[in-house]
Design a protein around this nucleic acid. Sequence first.
DNA 1: ATGCGCATCTTGTCAATGTCAAGATAAGGT
DNA 2: ACCTTATCTTGACATTGACAAGATGCGCAT
Lengths: 187, 187
Amino acid sequence: MREIDQYHHGNLKRVIIDAALQAIGESGPAGWSLRELARRAGVSHAAPAHHFGDKQGLLTAVAVEGFALFGDALERAADDVWEVGIAYVRFAIDHRPYFEVMFRPELYRADDPAVQAAHERAANVLITSARALSPGPEHDRMTTIAAWSLAHGFTSLWLSGALPESTHEDPEALARSMIHLVLGALR
Amino acid sequence: MREIDQYHHGNLKRVIIDAALQAIGESGPAGWSLRELARRAGVSHAAPAHHFGDKQGLLTAVAVEGFALFGDALERAADDVWEVGIAYVRFAIDHRPYFEVMFRPELYRADDPAVQAAHERAANVLITSARALSPGPEHDRMTTIAAWSLAHGFTSLWLSGALPESTHEDPEALARSMIHLVLGALR
DNA sequence: ATGCGCATCTTGTCAATGTCAAGATAAGGT
DNA sequence: ACCTTATCTTGACATTGACAAGATGCGCAT
C-alpha cells in the first residue's frame, strides 16, 4: 500500500514544512501558495491550514526551526569569534530558505513565544562571543552590534546578489578575507 | 471640476507610485494589492496595470527611483567615508519603502537597464569613497565589501527590528557610535 | 474485541486578487 | 473638423487564502 495515499498521512506537518522550504528556495518566501504545497505533498488544498492555521502560521514554524538550527550552528563555533562570523555566513548559504524567512518578521508571528525563545538563544551566542573583541566592558554592546552588522550585512548582500563577485567566488572564502581584514586591523 | 473624477487623470503614474510607497510603508512590499492602490487613487482596478504592466513592473519603477535617490544621497556625502556610512543608514530610515524594495531583487526586474544603471551609480560612490580606508590598493575591494557590509548590516538589522535597542534609541546616533568604534580601531 | 472520542484530512464555498481582452473617452496634432 | 493614439474602464477568468462542515480511521477505555 502506497504511503502517499493514506488518509492519515502521519507526519504531514514535517512534509509541508519541507515543501515550503523547497518552494522558498526556488522562488522566495512569497513565490508560492499553500495550495501548491498541498499539491506537492499530494494532499487536499486545505490540509496545510489544518496544521498551521494560516500562511503566517506555517512561516512561524519555519522561523522557529530556523532560529533553532541557527543557534546550534553558532554554538558549535562559539569559542572563536572569527568562526562565529563564518558560521553566520555559512548557515545563511547552507540553509538559505530558513534565513530568508527569519529576518523578515512581517512574514510570520514574531511575538510567538517559541520564536522569541529560539531567537534569544541565537542572539546570546553572538553577544557573548563578541565580548572577546571589545576594547572594554563599556564597549561590549557596540562591539556586538558592529560584529553582528558586519556578518549580517555581508550575508544579506551576498544573498541578494548585490556583491558583483557573487557568481564567481566562494562566499565562505570571501567572508574569511573580509573578517581577516577587519580583525587584523583591530589588533 | 474635481481633478479626481477626470477620465484622463494626467499623472496617474506618479500617484500610483506614491500610493505604493505609502502602502509599503504601512504593511511591507507585499502587504497590499494593485486593486487597493487603484482604490486609493480613485481609479479603476486595471488602471495601474496599464502603466506598469504588472506588479513587478510597478516595483521595478520603485526600485529605479529608489536607487536614483540613494545615489544622490550618497554622493552628497562622498568626500567623507564616515558620512557616507551615515547617509546609507539615514536613507534607509528616511526612505524606508524604497529601501525595502531595492535590496529584494526577486520583487522586481533586476535586469531592467534603468535599474542596473541607477544601481551601478550608487555602487560606484561606495567603491570610490571606501578607497580612503584601504590599507593598500590590493585591499581596495575587500575594504569596500567590509565597509558596505557594515553599513548594510546595521541598516537591515535596524529595519527588521532585530536590534533590541530599536525602540528607544536614535538610529543615526547608534550608527555613528558603531562607525566610530570600528574606524577608531582601524586607525 | 468493540465501540467511541478526537485528531487528521477532505470537500465545498466565498470574497479578493492578478492579469488579460475589448471597449469607452478625450487630448493633441494635422 | 477629424482622427490617431494614449489613457482609463468594464468585464471576465483562473488562482488564492480562509472558513465551515463533513468524512475517515487511529488508539484508548471498557
